[in-house]
Design a protein around this nucleic acid. Sequence first.
DNA 1: CACTTGACCTGTCCGC
DNA 2: TGCGGACAGGTCAAGT
Length: 289
Amino acid sequence: MPELPEVETVRRGLASFLPGKVIKSVDFNWDKSFPNATQDVQAYLIGASITRVRRRAKVLLIDLNTEHSLVIHLKMTGQLVFRGKNVAFGAGHPSDSLVGALPDKSTRVTFEFADESQLFFNDQRKFGWVKLYPTLEVPNIDFFKKVGPEPLNADFTQKDFRQRFKRRPNTNIKAALLDQTVIAGVGNIYADESLWGAKIHPATLVKNLSTAKMNKLYDELRYILNLAIEKGGSSDRNYVNAEGKRGSYLSFARVFRRQGQTCPRCDTIIVKTRVAGRGTHTCPKCQRQ
DNA sequence: CACTTGACCTGTCCGC
DNA sequence: TGCGGACAGGTCAAGT
């Protein structure tokens, strides 16, 4: 599911609800969803207070005042939904909501706080996880040692972007965009959307892309990631924000999940194919290989 | 090494 | 209505 804009949207929601909350209890019903929860839970989680909520790549970090952090990956279908006095099931328009009463059959971990509010980790497909690490060790996790730069960082330039891709000259640009060690945070939706924006066919080999094309891709990717954050992300099926509500980006999408519809630039019918092992949406006229 | 494919899971949709 | 197969926003390990 969640790519950079969705995870960032969840982070912003959690950052408004969680700081100061004191963990009263933690409940698990699927071991693999919280693989290193042992006696550490008692020592570092129960009674701990949340200090802040961060994001790196597609990973959320919830820092505690016990020098430990919850590290959370939502993978394809993970959700983190907060329920408290001011954020209750039923608030807002019903069509915004994708989750009802919690816990439900997809709930894998439940955190309860001292003020009776709760945080639910739901994950239909069970690929996602919550782990507990000493805060200082988080940068040493294999994933964080290898992951590429944040594409939206102010100091990340067109030149940096081109440099990062030089490590994957013989692979296609879509696979390279999805490779988290090149740059962080891009998944299937925003790969397709940004390639359409830059008029690049997803199967084009990286080494065959000009400097101008790569610069255009950088511009389109940053534009689309920022727009998606503004729209609260994409809810293709499971994704919801920290209040359990959908994001609206897909109503603005130009190609993703729009096969059979017309290209907004040239009216050609958008097609769905397979590139880098993933469903891929392109305009056959705008994006020639 | 660089690159591709399968595995991890559940649920839904589509064709027969 | 049932059943099999393909597919779904991600990442690893294992294969070539």
